[in-house]
Measured scan of single mutants.
Amino acid sequence: VTTYKLVINGKTLKGETTTKAVDAETAEKAFKQYANDNGVDGVWTYDDATKTFTVTE
């Protein structure tokens, strides 16, 4: 299990959150659900070296 980070650069929501997941794909699903629940819809990137997803509106 690895800790992944999400950086949110939204129009109305900015911040960070983390999740523990077995792989990046599982973390991405959780983060996309989180973003959707919070009304954030943007461009996604992922940096494997830092295990960090970024979504920018």
Score class of each variant (00 low, 15 high):
Ile8Tyr: 07
Glu25Cys: 10
Glu57Asn: 05
Asp23His: 05
Val22Ile: 13
Lys29Gly: 05
Thr19Ile: 14
Tyr34His: 05
Lys14Ser: 10
Tyr46Gln: 01
Thr52Phe: 02
Ala21Tyr: 04
Val7Lys: 08
Glu28Leu: 15
Lys11Val: 12
Glu16Pro: 05
Lys14Leu: 08
Val55Thr: 03
Asp37Trp: 07
Val7Asp: 03
Thr56Pro: 01
Asp48Phe: 08
Asn38Ile: 15
Glu16Asn: 08
Thr50Asp: 05
Thr26Ala: 13
Thr54Phe: 05
Lys29Gln: 09
Tyr46Leu: 02
Asn9Glu: 13
Gly15Asn: 09
Ala35Tyr: 03
Gln33Ile: 12
Tyr4Leu: 00
Ala21Asp: 03
Gly15Ala: 14
Asp23Lys: 04
Lys51Val: 04
Asp37Thr: 10
Glu25Gly: 10
Gly42Val: 02
Lys51Leu: 08
Thr26Lys: 07
Thr3Val: 12
Tyr46Met: 02
Asp48Val: 10
Asp23Met: 04
Asp48Ile: 09
Thr54Cys: 06
Ala30Gln: 15
Asn36Gln: 14
Tyr4Asn: 00
Thr26His: 10
Thr52Asn: 02
Gln33Lys: 13
Val22Cys: 08
Val22Phe: 13
Tyr34Glu: 02
Val1Cys: 14
Asp41Asn: 15
Leu6Met: 05
Val1Lys: 11
Val55Arg: 00
Ala35Pro: 01
Lys5Met: 08
Thr17Gln: 12
Ala35Ile: 07
Tyr34Leu: 05
Asp48Cys: 05
Ala27Leu: 01
Gly10Trp: 05
Glu16Val: 13
Ala27Thr: 01
Val1Leu: 14
Asp48Met: 08
Lys11Cys: 10
Asp41Ile: 15
Asp41Val: 15
Val55Phe: 03
Glu28Ile: 11
Thr26Ser: 14
Lys29Thr: 08
Ala49Gln: 09
Lys20Glu: 15
Asp37Ser: 10
Asp37Ile: 12
Val40Trp: 08
Lys29Glu: 07
Glu57Cys: 05
Tyr4Met: 01
Ala35Gln: 02
Tyr4Thr: 01
Lys14Tyr: 12
Val40Ile: 14
Val1Ile: 13
Asp37Glu: 15
Thr18Arg: 06
Ala30Leu: 14
Thr12Val: 11
Ala27Phe: 00
Thr17Gly: 05
Lys5Asn: 06
Glu16Phe: 12
Ala30Arg: 08
Ala21Ser: 06
Val22Met: 14
Gly42Tyr: 03
Thr17Lys: 09
Asn36Trp: 14
Lys20Asn: 15
Asn9Thr: 07
Thr56Trp: 08
Asp47Ile: 05
Thr56Gly: 04
Thr12Met: 11
Thr18Gln: 11
Ala24Trp: 14
Val7Pro: 00
Ala49Val: 10
Glu57His: 06
Ala35Thr: 08
Val22Glu: 14
Asn38Leu: 14
Tyr34Ile: 05
Gly15Lys: 13
Val1Gln: 15
Val40His: 04
Lys51His: 11
Trp44Phe: 04
Val1Phe: 11
Lys32Phe: 06
Gly10Phe: 13
Gly10Pro: 03
Thr2Cys: 10
Glu25Val: 12
Asp23Asn: 11
Thr26Leu: 07
Val7Arg: 06
Thr19Phe: 14
Tyr46Ala: 01
Tyr4Lys: 01
Ala27Asp: 00
Ala24Ser: 11
Thr54Arg: 05
Asp37Asn: 11
Phe53Ile: 02
Asp37Tyr: 07
Glu16Cys: 10
Thr3Gln: 10
Tyr4Cys: 01
Asp47Leu: 04
Thr26Arg: 06
Gly15Glu: 08
Val40Tyr: 08
Thr17Asn: 05
Thr2Pro: 08
Lys32Tyr: 06
Lys14Cys: 09
Lys29Cys: 07
Thr2Gly: 08
Trp44Gly: 00
Tyr4His: 02
Glu25Lys: 13
Tyr4Trp: 08
Gly42Phe: 03
Asn38Ala: 14
Phe53Gly: 00
Trp44His: 00
Asn38Val: 14
Glu16Thr: 13
Thr2Lys: 11
Phe53Ser: 00
Val43Met: 09
Val43Asp: 11
Glu25Met: 13
Phe53Val: 01
Thr12Trp: 14
Lys51Met: 07
Asn9Trp: 13
Glu25Gln: 13
Lys14Trp: 09
Gly39Arg: 06
Tyr34Phe: 11
Glu25Thr: 12
Ala30Gly: 05
Glu28Thr: 04
Leu13Pro: 04
Thr12Asp: 10
Thr2Met: 10
Thr45Lys: 06
Thr17Pro: 03
Gly15Leu: 14
Lys5Gln: 05
Lys29Ala: 11
Ala24Met: 13
Ala24Gly: 04
Val55Pro: 00
Tyr4Ile: 01
Glu57Pro: 08
Lys20Arg: 10
Thr3Asn: 08
Trp44Asn: 00
Asn36Met: 15
Glu28Met: 12
Thr50Glu: 08
Val22His: 13
Val7Met: 07
Val22Ser: 13
Tyr34Trp: 11
Gly42Pro: 01
Leu6Val: 03
Tyr34Gln: 03
Val43Asn: 07
Lys11Thr: 10
Gln33Asn: 12
Thr54Met: 09
Tyr46Asp: 00
Leu6Ala: 02
Thr19Gln: 06
Phe53His: 02
Gln33Cys: 06
Ala30Val: 15
Asn36Ser: 14
Lys5Glu: 03
Ala35Trp: 03
Asn38Phe: 14
Tyr34Gly: 01
Asp48Tyr: 07
Lys20Trp: 12
Thr52Tyr: 03
Lys20Thr: 15
Thr18Ser: 11
Thr2Trp: 09
Tyr4Glu: 01
Gly39Val: 03
Gln33Thr: 08
Leu13Ser: 09
Thr17Asp: 03
Thr45Ile: 08
Lys51Ser: 06
Lys5Val: 10
Gly42Glu: 01
Leu13Ala: 09
Lys32Arg: 15
Gly42Trp: 07
Gly39His: 10
Thr26Glu: 12
Gly10Tyr: 06
Lys20Ile: 15
Asp48Lys: 08
Glu28Cys: 12
Thr45Cys: 08
Ala35Phe: 03
Lys32Met: 08
Leu6Ser: 01
Asn9Ala: 10
Gly15Ser: 15
Val22Leu: 11
Gly10Ala: 12
Val7His: 05
Trp44Met: 04
Lys5Asp: 02
Asn38Pro: 01
Lys32Glu: 03
Ala27Lys: 00
Lys51Ala: 05
Thr56Cys: 06
Thr54Tyr: 13
Thr50Ile: 06
Phe31Asp: 00
